[in-house]
């Protein structure tokens, strides 16, 4: 038992924190916790895409928007239950993930990153122009989450629901990492030719990575929509995509711990940098560059990095 605990203290501690924290904070604190959980799913999705598959996306705000509007519309227009809406949001995003990744059938290299740039602008434009569906400039009201007939009116209960979903998806990510599709992706990242010669279909795997990543981000978008209660196309800009990338990289693309740290960074940075509001994105950009130069493993790799530095000194 103690051995098990020594090996697994990180997830246990995180889970305990997740269960306790909502009781220790006020209403706004629960909103912050909910935001961290929402962002951590996006961060996790980029861990799959960049960390496992070695592909870059600067268009994840597009998938996020598809999840948010997808869920909101299914719930408001079709009267679907909240959880069905969330799932639909994820699936819609995943389908578009496949479309963005289709060029992987023919090209290698960083071309897909360019496609994600086009995709982000495309989604933004369509949302803005398609007023009858999205409300365009006016925006769109989204009902509070409801589960088995109970409306979760405050964020306290919603945080617990999100926690269940985040834990589930984190567990699925870890499963994916250790199973064959995940291993195949990491092999492709390390040596594409060797992986292909060993029988791994590159295009198929990259499309799967994009779909899975888009699915997570779509789920996140759906949860976000019902948290905020109001959608405006201005939330899903290109800057949002870039913030997502920044958070995932700074947290660390190797693990769910990194994903969580990234989400905390993205949620807390505006609170900390409130003084210099305009400079906040500049700080994001600089931290992104500095991180790549000095700490490519992100915040999650900090303990190990410090240990190795200390070892070198002695």
């Amino acid at each position: 038992m103690t051995l098990w605990l020594r090996k697994n203290w990180i997830p246990v501690a995180l889970l305990a924190a997740g269960l306790v924290l909502p009781n220790l904070v006020e209403h706004y604190g629960n909103f912050i916790l909910a935001s961290i959980l929402v962002y951590s799913l996006v961060s996790l999705s980029l861990t799959i895409l960049i960390g496992f598959a070695g592909q870059i996306s600067i268009g994840h705000a597009g998938f996020w928007a598809l999840g948010a509007y997808g869920s909101a519309l299914v719930v408001t227009e079709l009267g679907a239950p909240f959880l069905v809406g969330v799932l639909v949001g994820g699936i819609v995003a995943a389908l578009f993930g496949a479309v963005v990744a289709l060029p992987a059938l023919r090209v290698q290299g960083h071309y897909l990153a360019i496609a994600t740039l086009g995709f982000a602008l495309f989604v933004q434009q369509v949302l803005f122009e398609w007023e009858s569906l999205t409300g365009g400039r006016q925006g769109l009201f989204v009902p509070r989450p409801e589960i088995f007939g109970y409306e979760l009116t405050d964020d306290y209960a919603y945080v617990y629901l999100m926690l269940v979903i985040v834990v589930l998806l984190t567990w699925m990510t870890e499963n994916f990492r250790r199973s064959h599709t995940g291993r195949a992706l990491m092999a492709l990242k390390m040596s594409t030719v060797a992986a292909e010669v060993a029988g791994i279909n590159r295009a198929r795997h990259i499309i799967i990575a994009f779909m899975l990543s888009a699915f997570y981000t779509g789920i996140s978008g759906a949860l976000y929509a019902h948290l905020i209660g109001f959608l405006s196309t201005e939330t899903f800009t290109f800057t949002t995509s870039l913030s997502f990338l920044t958070m995932a990289v700074i947290g660390g693309l190797g693990s769910y711990v990194g994903a969580l740290l990234g989400a905390i960074y993205l949620t807390m940075a505006p609170e900390v940098f409130r003084e210099f509001k305009d400079a906040q994105m500049v700080v994001y950009g600089l931290t992104l560059i500095l991180c790549m130069q000095f700490l490519p493993g992100g915040l999650a790799s900090l303990p190990e990095r410090l240990r190795s530095l200390r070892r070198r000194r002695t």
Partner: peptide, 9 residues
């Protein structure tokens, strides 16, 4: 193991 994965999917 990457090479033997092909036979177990």
């Amino acid at each position: 193991a990457v090479s033997s994965m092909r036979r177990f999917r």
